[in-house]
Design a protein around this nucleic acid. Sequence first.
DNA 1: ATTAGCACTCGCTGAACAAGAGTGCTAACA
DNA 2: TGTTAGCACTCTTGTTCAGCGAGTGCTAAT
Lengths: 351, 351
Amino acid sequence: MFLDDRKRRILRAIIDDYIDTAEPIGSRTIARKHELGLSSATIRNEMADLEEMGYLAQPHTSAGRIPSDKGYRLYVDNLMGIRELTLEEIESIKEAMEVRINELGQLIRQASVILSRITKYTSMAITPQMKKSILRTVQVVPIESSKALVIVVTNAGIVRNCMMKIPEKAEPQDLVRVSNILSEKLCGCTIEQINQQTIKDVEHEIGISKELLLPVLDGVSECIGQIDNPEVYLEGTTNIFNYPEFRDIMKAKGFLNVLDEKDVLYKLLNSHLENDSRINVQIGTENELDEIKDCSLVTTTYRIGDIVIGSMGVIGPTRMEYPKVISSMNYIRNQINRQLDRIVGQITDDS
Amino acid sequence: MFLDDRKRRILRAIIDDYIDTAEPIGSRTIARKHELGLSSATIRNEMADLEEMGYLAQPHTSAGRIPSDKGYRLYVDNLMGIRELTLEEIESIKEAMEVRINELGQLIRQASVILSRITKYTSMAITPQMKKSILRTVQVVPIESSKALVIVVTNAGIVRNCMMKIPEKAEPQDLVRVSNILSEKLCGCTIEQINQQTIKDVEHEIGISKELLLPVLDGVSECIGQIDNPEVYLEGTTNIFNYPEFRDIMKAKGFLNVLDEKDVLYKLLNSHLENDSRINVQIGTENELDEIKDCSLVTTTYRIGDIVIGSMGVIGPTRMEYPKVISSMNYIRNQINRQLDRIVGQITDDS
DNA sequence: ATTAGCACTCGCTGAACAAGAGTGCTAACA
DNA sequence: TGTTAGCACTCTTGTTCAGCGAGTGCTAAT
């Protein structure tokens, strides 16, 4: 059976309607609402075909049709229109994103907030993956007689610090020397290169009292650990209660339980990290995770320059307003990228 | 009518049972399960009295009784037994809390996680309120030719930093001088004392080029702002789905919606901050907030030395296992306090 | 003062039933 | 030959109603 143009138009009409109403769509509804110039009987026949081809399904004999995952897939890839953002939407995104946030994590969180607010679904995001960023500065600053702060700065402007106990007798110039040596050894390396072994190497090379060097190295390694340590943001979880597919308490519970597991979210977002900069859509059973096999997940990545450093996503019922989600995400992603470039540029002045 | 000992025993039995089963309790159930040596008819009479006195309520004529808020109040204040933590519970708390966390925020979050896990309700906590803490160190560290990191350390060991642009021509010794002057002026003050005005004062007093001083002061004020900026942690939200009182989807939604508002949570926890170190229980309508008038909120504070710096709480249905919640919270609070003292002691060595 | 007994109340459950929406099929039509 | 009108059939949903069970309040006996 061939999927001709008329079938496509009907399928699109059905999916558009179903996304809107969440009710199985009958042939009469389509004949009435959409100007296809066809009677309900004709549409009925076409719908039977579409079902046979696997694009539609019937909850029970005497009900209308609902889209299958395969139907949604076709819809997302070929059928759906693009939904421009409204002026208000654009405004509200800009307003939320253009506050000057200098902490990368805060920027991403804010993006997640606005993403869930615009789409009305649940949004999530992971903080920048900084493995690839480059260590710029290592400094040791004396705070009190026996305390020093180890400070680490990356090319992306991430600053981390760690308070360490140092020997009472350490002189300021010792600290300066340690700083200099560490800078020389470690600066220019990416975070992932600076693993424990590298740090150990430094430990052996330098001729400085271990009593001073060891705590400082501990501090560096703690800082590195903190940079690498990802955060997951989750926003708009209660939005799901607005959708009838989660009217069932067990469904809602299952969904929220998955989202409660930060590491599950992390994997979810991370698995699409290597993809190109397009927007990725996983529909229903296309998802690996059993618990969300009746949800759709729309993800994309954001970047500094050319390097992908993190990703964000929207999760909701398969009956999702794909056009709106995709254009919102697109717009917000661009905003993030712009802000990231600004922040990094501002801090590192690579120009 | 006098609330004699027998009435109390019956009331306690009813509430214990109701907390356990969530079903209205009939006279026969009490007569059977608890060894009170009384017939169901007698208990029936007593129950009628207890209802008249306002300790019990009847969902409808032919149902058993459920406790009223007033009943729970009496129960919490006078009737209930104490529930010792089991060895496993103690173990799991210790295990979770005794990892060496040096960031105060992380410690509190971890406490919140374990609190919700042990109690099976939803827990929340606010990060330390650091208004009262004292500024110990201000330092300005050059990072690149035109960038400097402003670092602020408090007596509680909180470290904040902020990257600022400074004039290219600024010499290292200028930065040291600024550091010294700022330290002299600001150290020893509490965070809340160092408001914009104080900073402005410093600006006028010092004879250093404004080009350098202004960004540094901005940095200090940004750091101060960050210290003051509270975080709210929320854990175990999906636990509520285990309780029949939230079986209704709208109830669950309403509850989760309240918890989604960070500033509402903040107020909720903050309003009990001035209280002494006891554990505070708000039952049902005792809560100010309409949306949680059928919930109970158990809160307490934690502290460094004698100063209360934050609070944590558990929220759940009024039918809450008060004895368990209270003893868990007590134990965890003590663990927090101990850890806090350790962290602060380690960093500031006040001894 | 306590208890046994009994009539009464009320919510819950399941069956029966009607209404409504939608389908598939057949036959008629352009 | 593709399209459409008509109709019988299916299945869900909502409603009504009777019967059951849990529990009460009251009265009379202990």
